[in-house]
């Protein structure tokens, strides 16, 4: 915690306030967009894009990931890889093992159980 560090932090104060204002604006935007009569797919996409943008701002500046060391990036890369694998497995399982779920609800597919193929 040298004077050098203190000067560096002082320089970032305006940036932190800017990020805060951006986060508030994006929150209002999320609510405003949800009031529009968009289709489900578009509404979900827009909401997730705004949320990802907000999360990136918090991560990059408030959590200092924009200036972090390689060890932390490596750690997050591993966590991210497992997270996306898990999400990927979920989507794959919906597609491969529950073929009726996307087009029709589970209740509808349950009526066909038990099926010889195990679907």
């Amino acid at each position: 915690m040298t004077d050098e560090h203190a000067d560096e932090v002082r320089k970032h104060l305006k940036l932190y306030i800017g990020v805060f204002v951006a986060l508030i604006v994006l929150t209002v935007a999320t609510v405003a967009v949800s009031k529009l009569a968009l289709g489900v797919a578009l509404a979900v996409s827009v909401a997730l894009i705004i949320a990802t943008l907000k999360v990136s701002l918090v991560g990059a500046y408030f959590m200092h990931l924009a200036w972090e060391k390689r060890a932390i990036y490596a750690l997050l890369l591993v966590a991210g890889a497992f997270l996306f694998s898990m999400m990927g497995l979920l989507i794959w399982s919906l597609d491969a093992h529950l073929p009726g779920t996307v087009k029709a609800p589970i209740e509808a597919t349950e009526k066909h159980h038990p099926s010889p193929e195990g679907h």
């Binding site: 929150t27 999320t30 609510v31 949800s34 489900v40 509404a43 979900v44 909401a47 997730l48 705004i50 949320a51 907000k54 999360v55 918090v58 991560g59």
Partner: peptide
């Protein structure tokens, strides 16, 4: 950060 995802997911979509 978790709440930023929870809010639209549960309240808006």
């Amino acid at each position: 950060l978790v709440w930023i995802f929870l809010f639209p997911t549960l309240y808006l979509l």
